[in-house]
């Protein structure tokens, strides 16, 4: 267990390969829930939570069920089912214990299931060997899920902050709404591109 790997993973998933701005995972919530700062924060927290849990569960399933029984080809089906039931569980938990947050997230919580970031992180945990030069172990996978969620939240919060200002700005009529959001996202992505020059290995 190499402690430096954890730092490499954190910097890599938050800045260098930011899930939204570098890898294009989770664009739907990035555009859909980034209108207000507080709902963006709630969504970000939900995604961090789901991604960490999903990384934990899918890694265990891959290591102790799919690999020993040589069922690796069922990975996509197994992972998406696990993630779907996990999200369902979180939704039930939130509805009962945090009704105000549940109301503000509204329709987007079930959509975490079809958020490619969650399935994406589960698959990347198994497949990605470029980040630290070898396959992730259990702790590294969970850590990767957690930090990727933080990266997603940072991108979402930046976008929400910009969009709250954009409400007041004088945007050309044909660019109002979604188009200007994408163009702002492009400018944030340019800024994040600067991190790709970083090398920490």
């Amino acid at each position: 267990m190499d402690f430096s790997h954890l730092i490499v993973i954190a910097v890599s998933s938050i800045f260098i390969n930011n899930f939204v701005l570098g890898r294009f995972l989770g664009i739907c919530p990035f555009i859909g829930v980034s209108k207000k700062l507080d709902s963006a924060l709630g969504m970000g927290m939900a995604v961090i939570f789901v991604m960490t849990l999903a990384s934990t569960v899918t890694f265990l399933i891959q290591t102790y069920v799919l690999v020993p029984f040589e069922l690796e080809y069922l990975r996509t089906i197994a992972f998406i089912l696990v993630i779907a039931s996990l999200v369902q569980f979180i939704e039930m938990f939130m509805k009962k214990n945090m009704p105000s947050l549940y109301q503000s997230l509204g329709v987007f919580l079930p959509l975490i299931t079809t958020n490619c970031a969650v399935l994406g992180v589960a698959i990347l945990n198994i497949d990605d060997i470029a980040m630290i030069g070898q396959h992730f172990n259990f702790i590294e996978s969970v850590w990767n899920g957690f930090t990727a969620g933080i990266g997603f939240t940072i991108a979402l919060l930046l976008m929400a902050g910009i969009r709250e200002r954009l409400e007041l700005a004088d945007v050309p009529e044909s660019l109002k709404g979604t188009p200007i959001t994408f163009i702002s996202a492009s400018l944030i992505a340019v800024a994040f591109l600067g991190f790709s020059g970083m090398s920490i290995m």
Binding site: L175, T178, I183, S186, A189
Partner: peptide, 14 residues
């Protein structure tokens, strides 16, 4: 690179 994707999408939607 990624920024180009966002930019193209924004301009096409515009």
């Amino acid at each position: 690179l990624p920024p180009g994707g966002f930019l193209t999408m924004g301009l096409i939607l515009g």
